[in-house]
Each structure stands twice: as C-alpha cells, then as structure tokens.
C-alpha cells in the first residue's frame, strides 16, 4: 500500500512502531488506540513551560499548544490540548511519545506525511489529520530554529 511505502523511509523507531501498531488493527480498533493515546498525553507540570513559550497550532479546531525545549542535550516536546478534544489530544500524544528521546536530526528527518501513514484517513476526516501535520511541522521548525 502506498500509505506504508511513502513513510517507511527513515522513520525513527518509536514512530515506526506506532505506525505499524495502527496499521495492524481494524479501522475501529485504530480509533480505540487513538483514544488510548489521548488518555496518555502527559500532563505538563505547572511552570514547566513559560506561558509565552507555547505556540498555538492554528490548524487544529481546538486550542492546542506545542513547545519544544531545546536547552538540553536532546529536544523535549510538550503539548497541551483540552479533554473535550480527544482526537486532537491523541494526535499530540502520538508525537510526544513517538519523538521522545530522539535527537535533533532524527526529529527533523520525520517525513511530513507521517500523519497520513497511520491508516486513520477513513475514520478521521482529512482535515483533522492536517491538524496533526500542523503540530509536526511546528515541532520541526522549533527544533530547526534552535540549532
């Protein structure tokens, strides 16, 4: 399937595992997994990210904010999204977990079509997936600008 081949190149390990896990499931089970991701979006401790450091992902229909801490040896991705927007939370959570521990180059190498490779296109409208692309591109831009 083209949705696999386009993104299989150079996809870092954790993201490749997440993608393979999604693709191994039926469409309804993929949604269940997205829901589990939404429930596991790490809570950002109060004060961990300064208020003015958050960047809003305007492609998303809900208020979603991204911040990449680039001060340490490896970038750390933070994201917040409201409880009443579980789909968006799920997308943010996939990126937070999938990019965890990766170095700068690995984050920058993630293909822009990763969101389209998860097999969610039938279940979640294309527009919602664009929100996830908006998150990924912002993360990559923040990482690129910091170096």
């Amino acid at each position: 399937m083209s949705e696999i081949s386009e993104s299989s190149r150079e996809l870092p390990g954790a993201l490749a595992d997440i993608r393979d896990d999604f693709l191994a499931l039926s469409v309804s089970d993929r949604l269940q997994m997205l829901l589990e991701f939404s429930e596991s979006l790490p809570e950002v401790p109060e004060g961990m990210v300064p208020d003015d450091a958050w960047e809003q992902v305007v492609e998303c229909q809900s208020p979603v904010f991204i911040h990449v801490d680039t001060d340490g040896p490896r970038p750390v991705v933070y994201a917040t999204a409201p409880q009443e927007a579980p789909t968006t939370r799920g997308f943010a959570s996939i990126l937070v977990h999938g990019l965890e521990g990766l170095d700068r180059d690995a984050i920058l190498s993630v293909p822009g079509d990763f969101p389209q490779s998860l097999g969610l296109n039938e279940a979640v409208s294309f527009l919602r997936l664009r929100g996830m692309s908006g998150m990924l591109s912002r993360i990559q831009r923040q990482v690129a600008e910091a170096s």
Binding site: L31, S38, A85, E122, V124
Partner: peptide, 26 residues
C-alpha cells in the same frame, strides 16, 4: 464534531452517529 468524544463517556444507552463516516456517502 470530535469522533472520539462519545468513547470518552456518553449518556447511558445512547448510540453514536458520526457525521463524517455514517451520514455521508464515502
């Protein structure tokens, strides 16, 4: 609007109908 919202908790006995995948022709 959010396809997962029903699954996070819904009114007891209610069924979900998704505008995107269930009411429209694909």
């Amino acid at each position: 609007e959010d396809i997962l919202l029903y699954d996070t908790g819904h009114i007891p006995g209610s069924v979900k109908i998704d505008w995107h995948t269930e009411l429209n022709d694909p």
